[in-house]
Write a protein that binds this DNA or RNA. Structure first.
Lengths: 108, 108
DNA sequence: TGACATACCTAGATTTGCTAGGTATAATAT
DNA sequence: ATATTATACCTAGCAAATCTAGGTATGTCA
């Protein structure tokens, strides 16, 4: 079907970054928190997507030292990324609406 | 993440069959209709899933002649299939709710 | 000092859906 | 009459998305 699988991971990452800059590991924790542990994103999923987003100029990376002394790799949403987020948000709403329409029809 | 990709195709098919028995080609048309053309399921997607559902005893197939004279292969939801549908429905709601929670947090 | 949490990374397998082909019949247009 | 389109089923192989399972390294706490 048409764009059957929305790139959920990408949508979620962009959405997180729209509230504030974050580093990878933080995104995993934050996603779990905001979804009440429904999402348990794996590092093997996150990092490749993050690198692809950077390569496509949807996000920019920069390093910053944490209070602990460790250097973290933060990601910032670009203008292009913001546009992509809006687009994917729309796609998600359309998609979820369609699934719900089919599920509701079930009861009819 | 945990069951990241709900088996959307399966959920949609089971949902369709819960309203009435259908044959494959009909499901494609009906899905498009109920979703207002958001879903355009491909035959290459549908038939393999249908066969897997049959093998797993979630649906049963039977042949029936159409008024046109052609024989169609109808599918009927089994009790097991009904249980699976309820389960996947729940999973979908949980999943969609989590995505929406993350998207809403964005605005915060 | 040993275990665990933090923090990053990648190769390869798995799953899911799509592309692109095939067969065959019925309806419709030319 | 005949060519095209819609109906109706099928499968092999490709592509994309995510996960598994490993690796490296540092900081924290019992």
């Amino acid at each position: 079907m048409k764009k059957q699988s929305i790139e959920h991971t990408q949508l979620l990452i962009l959405s997180l970054l729209s509230s504030r800059d974050m580093y990878g590991y933080e995104m995993i924790l934050e996603l779990a928190r905001r979804s009440q542990n429904v999402f348990e994103m794996k590092e093997g999923t996150l990092y490749p997507v993050l690198h692809a987003l950077e390569k496509g100029h949807y996000v920019e990376a920069y390093e910053q030292e944490a209070p602990t002394g460790r250097v973290r790799k933060y990601y910032r949403l670009t203008k292009k990324g913001r546009g992509c987020l809006a687009e994917e948000r729309g796609a998600w709403e359309k998609y979820a609406g369609a699934v719900n329409a089919v599920l509701r029809a079930e009861a009819t």
